[in-house]
Deep mutational scan, measured.
Amino acid sequence: PDEFRDPLMDTLMTDPVRLPSGTIMDRSIILRHLLNSPTDPFNRQTLTESMLEPVPELKEQIQAWMREKQN
């Protein structure tokens, strides 16, 4: 489902985090971005790792969907 895909890389998220802007991304992708630029890739506001907020409900939904697909 589209809501499980990272908006920057269009890959399935495994550890979704919410940026201060409200955008949800995969943690590994935003951390890689932050190594090059300490900004939100969508609005260029300053962004640090400590500002990332886990989204455990979405992570659980993704994991359940993945388990379902394996069966």
Rank of each mutant, 00 (worst) to 15 (best):
E68S: 13
R5W: 07
T11V: 13
L58A: 07
P41Q: 07
L12K: 09
A64W: 07
L35K: 15
P7W: 02
R18P: 00
N36G: 07
T23G: 07
M51C: 13
N43M: 05
T23Y: 11
R27D: 06
K69M: 11
R32L: 09
N71Y: 14
E57L: 10
R18T: 01
S21D: 02
M25L: 08
M9L: 11
E3C: 06
I24T: 05
Q61V: 10
N43K: 05
E68W: 08
L19C: 05
S50N: 14
S37E: 12
K69I: 15
Q61Y: 05
I30N: 03
W65K: 08
I30G: 01
P54T: 03
L12E: 10
V55D: 01
M25F: 09
A64I: 06
M9W: 02
E3N: 08
L58R: 07
M51I: 06
V55Q: 11
P7M: 03
V55T: 04
L19M: 09
S50E: 15
I62Q: 08
R27A: 01
M25V: 09
P1Q: 01
P20W: 01
T23D: 10
F42S: 06
P7I: 04
L19S: 03
S28L: 03
D2W: 06
E68G: 08
S50F: 08
S21C: 10
T48F: 00
R44S: 15
R44Y: 07
Q45Y: 04
I62W: 01
G22H: 04
T39M: 08
N71A: 13
R67F: 13
P41W: 00
G22A: 01
S50G: 14
D40A: 01
N43P: 02
D10K: 10
P1L: 01
R32Q: 14
T46R: 14
N43V: 06
Q63S: 14
S21Y: 01
P41R: 01
L52E: 02
E49L: 11
K59Q: 10
I30T: 02
S37Y: 06
V17S: 08
V55E: 08
L12C: 09
E53H: 11
P20C: 03
R5Y: 09
K69G: 13
L35T: 08
S21V: 01
E57Y: 11
M25T: 02
E57N: 05
T48P: 01
S37F: 07
P1C: 03
E49F: 03
N36C: 11
L19F: 05
I24A: 07
L34A: 01
M9C: 13
T46H: 15
L58E: 04
L34I: 10
I29G: 04
R18C: 06
I29T: 12
G22T: 02
R44C: 10
V17A: 01
P38I: 04
L31W: 09
P20V: 00
T48Q: 15
M25A: 08
M9F: 06
G22W: 01
M51E: 14
E60I: 06
P20D: 00
S50H: 13
D6F: 04
P16W: 00
D2T: 11
S37C: 10
E68R: 09
T39D: 08
T14M: 12
Q45H: 11
L52V: 07
P7H: 00
L19I: 00
F4L: 02
M51N: 07
S21I: 06
P56K: 11
L12P: 13
N43S: 12
Q70A: 14
Q61P: 10
E57P: 05
N36H: 14
P20L: 02
E3I: 15
L31V: 15
R32A: 13
S50C: 02
R18Q: 13
R32D: 13
M66W: 14
P54S: 07
V17Y: 03
F42W: 11
R32Y: 03
I24F: 03
D40N: 04
S21K: 07
M25P: 04
E49V: 12
A64F: 04
F42Y: 10
R44T: 09
I30R: 01
T48G: 05
V17N: 14
L34Q: 04
H33I: 05
Q70H: 12
P38G: 13
L34S: 03
F4M: 10
L52N: 01
N43R: 07
R32W: 05
I30P: 03
V17W: 00
T14D: 07
F4G: 02
M51R: 07
R5Q: 07
R18G: 02
R44D: 10
Q61H: 15
L58K: 10
N43E: 05
S28D: 14
Q70V: 07
E49C: 09
D15L: 01
I62F: 04
M9G: 11
R27E: 09
L8C: 08
M66N: 11
S28G: 14
L35F: 12
N36T: 14
P38A: 10
L19E: 03
E3K: 13
P1T: 06
L12A: 05
Q63M: 10
S37W: 02
I24G: 06
M25G: 03
P16D: 00
P1A: 05
D15V: 00
T23I: 09
N43H: 13
P38S: 10
I30M: 02
I24C: 04
N43L: 04
M25I: 01
Q70E: 15
F4A: 04
E49Q: 11
A64P: 07
Q45C: 08
L34D: 09
F42E: 08
L34R: 02
P7L: 03
P41S: 03
L52P: 01
P38C: 09
L31P: 01
P54L: 00
T14H: 09
I30D: 00
Q61N: 15
T48C: 08
P1W: 01
S37I: 11
M66S: 10
D26N: 03
P1F: 09
R5L: 10
W65P: 10
M13K: 01
V55G: 03
L34V: 07
W65G: 06
P20R: 04
Q63C: 06
T14A: 07
P56R: 05
P56S: 10
P1E: 04
E3D: 11
S50V: 08
L19Q: 07
E3S: 11
P54G: 09
T48V: 06
W65L: 04
D6I: 02
K69S: 11
D2R: 14
N43Y: 03
T46V: 11
D2Q: 15
T23F: 13
M9D: 12
L8I: 14
T46Y: 11
I62G: 05
Q70S: 11
M51G: 07
L19W: 00
P20A: 00
F42C: 07
P20F: 00
L8A: 05
A64K: 11
N43C: 03
G22F: 00
L34M: 11
S28W: 07
L31K: 10
P16V: 02
T11I: 14
D15F: 01
L35A: 15
S37G: 07
Q70T: 14
I24W: 00
G22C: 04
D2M: 12
L52H: 04
R5T: 08
T14Q: 14
N43W: 00
P1R: 06
R44V: 07
E68M: 13
S50P: 11
L8F: 11
D10Y: 02
F42M: 11
M13T: 04
L47I: 13
Q45K: 13
Q45G: 12
K69F: 11
P56G: 04
M13S: 03
P41E: 04
E49I: 13
P41T: 00
S37M: 04
R67G: 12
P54A: 05
R32T: 15
L35P: 08
T39P: 00
S37R: 09
V17I: 03
L35R: 15
P41Y: 00
K69C: 13
R67N: 13
R18A: 09
P41A: 04
Q70G: 14
L58N: 06
N71S: 13
V17M: 07
T11E: 03
N36I: 09
D15A: 03
L35Q: 14
D2E: 15
E53L: 07
I29E: 03
T11A: 07
P56H: 10
W65N: 07
P56M: 09
M66V: 14
F42R: 03
A64V: 12
D40R: 03
S50A: 13
T11Y: 02
T46L: 14
P38V: 00
T46K: 13
T48A: 08
A64E: 09
K69P: 09
L58M: 07
D40W: 00
Q45I: 07
S28H: 10
G22L: 02
L34Y: 02
S37K: 01
S21H: 02
S50T: 13
L31I: 12
R27N: 06
T48M: 10
D15T: 09
H33N: 02
T14K: 09
L31Q: 09
I30Y: 06
T39L: 09
K69Y: 14
V55H: 05
M9R: 11
R67A: 15
K69T: 15
I29D: 04
M66Y: 05
Q63T: 11
S28V: 10
L35Y: 09
I29C: 09
Q61M: 08
T48D: 11
S21Q: 06
D40I: 04
M13R: 01
R5E: 09
L47M: 08
L34K: 07
